[in-house]
Design a protein around this nucleic acid. Structure first.
Ligand SMILES: [Zn+2]
Ligand SMILES: [Zn+2]
Ligand SMILES: [Zn+2]
Ligand SMILES: [Zn+2]
Length: 441
DNA sequence: CAGCAGGGGGCGA
DNA sequence: CGCCCCCTGCTGG
């Protein structure tokens, strides 16, 4: 051990940030120990270490648990796609609150949000908007208050039942009154489930960018994959930075399908006012006991000028030299290869790796770094479906769902048509899938 | 096609 | 920087 120290001691004098990834555990610990004394952050760092250690121990515990449950679970040769594993389990564990919630007949007026507008297109928009918001504010008051209380009710980390894939939701401290507890964890270095998910996210996080890129190549007509209304009068969404949104797609790429103008924008406008989430407002929950120790800040963000892309001398897990795309996305995560055009988004992304996912669903262990996302997520448990279609009885939990529904069921034209066969669809992603079939033969 | 998660960006504090 | 929202991708039915 002394020898080790001499080595690391010698090493530590010339340790630079960029070599950190190459240090072994002992060297890291030594280095940390040495440096932490120079800072006033001993406590904060200790907190983080406690968190890490806690996670390690939990992981240990979980593994031993898992080994003992060798029947149905993961020893099972059935291949569960990565990332879906947790999702599936989440679904299996999903409570039956759904039926309960939905059984109260949604009183025709109750959940019809965007519908009035759609059915009476001549309605004055602002008027109906106000009416609708008032109605929904009313509707959501209870829920908002409930969640608000829950948000304030932060269990101590030690007592919190950590959600796990092996832990049925019933073990989570839920009550009949509040099946869903939105919990904001004080300090937390991604506990077990978060860890799992974070890893999943990592695996996941690279492809979307690429996917989007590919898609935009395929569909150069739009900056955001759906055709824009030529009138363009749609909110602030038409971004000045359309150009910056994606790298210039390579137009030479073969696009074998085309998209005709859709009614998207009209639908968007119809449903614009009816967003119930506007009514779900929380007081500033930064006051509710969450101690921002700065843990969610990644080292990456801390140690570099804000306008400088991440340092990273490690070999990237993902091919990162790919020219154009990367030139437009200079902000790179040094832990998974995620790239973004904006530092803001990189910071957001880094929360996947750090303690940033403060908001945890007690029902299933889902974690979010954004409270709004958790609110939306909890609807999957409560069955709350605040969006409803004006033309039929369909109800949706997310706004995007109802927009899809409108396009599918109440839109006359399917804007995406295949150039190879007769296939038409209303959904860009479907067309993309369809084209894959052609590509495969 | 429905359900849902997450990237990305706007906006206000 | 947090919140909110739009949009898209992925997956299962
Ligand atoms: Zn990352
Ligand atoms: Zn949940
Ligand atoms: Zn409908
Ligand atoms: Zn085709």
């Amino acid at each position: 051990m002394p020898g080790q120290h001499e080595v690391t001691c010698g090493l530590s004098r010339e340790v630079t940030i960029s070599v950190l990834p190459r240090l072994n555990m002992e060297e890291l610990i030594y280095e940390l120990n040495r440096r932490v004394k120079n800072l006033d952050r001993e406590n904060s760092i200790k907190d983080r270490l406690v968190g890490i250690l806690r996670d390690v121990m939990l992981e240990e515990y979980r593994q031993s648990e898992r080994r003992s449950i060798s029947d149905v679970d993961f020893s099972n040769p059935v291949i569960v796609p990565r990332e879906k594993r947790t999702k599936r389990i989440m679904r299996e564990n999903a409570p039956t609150a759904y039926a309960e919630t939905m059984s109260s007949s949604p009183g025709p007026s109750r959940q019809r949000s965007g519908l009035d507008v759609a059915m009476n297109p001549e309605n004055n928009d602002t008027r109906s908007e106000n009416r609708m918001n008032a109605k929904e504010a009313e509707l959501n008051t209870d829920q908002a208050q409930l969640q608000q209380e829950q948000l304030c009710d932060v269990p101590s980390p030690s007592s919190s039942t950590l959600p796990s894939e092996d832990t049925p939701p019933t073990q989570v401290n839920t009550t009949a009154d509040s099946p869903i507890v939105i919990k904001e964890e004080p300090f937390d270095m991604t506990t077990e489930d978060g860890e799992t998910r974070a890893c999943d996210d990592d695996a996941n996080v690279d492809s979307p960018t690429l996917g989007t890129h590919v898609f935009n190549i395929m569909n150069p007509m739009s900056s955001s994959s759906y055709p824009k209304n030529p009138l363009g009068g749609n909110k602030s969404r038409e971004k000045i930075s359309t150009a910056s949104q994606q790298p210039n797609p390579d137009h030479s790429d073969v696009r074998q399908w085309e998209c005709h103008v859709s009614e998207d924008d009209r639908i968007r406008q119809i449903y614009q006012p009816s967003n119930p989430d506007n009514a779900v407002s929380f007081p500033d929950d930064r006051d509710t006991g969450f101690v921002d120790t700065g843990h969610e800040q990644s080292n990456v963000q801390r140690d570099q000028p804000s306008n400088f892309p991440t340092y990273d001398n490690r070999p990237s897990l993902v091919p990162n030299d790919n020219s154009m795309q990367n030139n437009f996305k200079p902000y790179k995560c040094n832990q998974c290869g995620f790239r973004s055009m904006y530092p803001h988004n990189l910071k957001k992304h880094m929360k996947h790796h750090t303690a940033g996912k403060r908001f945890m669903c007690n029902e299933c262990g889902y974690r979010a770094y954004d409270k709004y996302r958790l609110v939306e997520h909890t609807r999957t448990h409560t069955g709350e479906k605040p969006y409803s279609c004006d033309m039929c009885d369909y109800k949706a939990a997310f706004k995007s769902q109802i927009m899809k529904h409108m396009k599918k069921n109440h839109m006359t034209v399917k804007p995406y048509s295949c150039g190879i066969c007769d296939h038409k669809t209303y959904q860009a992603s479907d067309m993309k899938l369809h084209m894959k079939c052609h590509a495969l033969g």
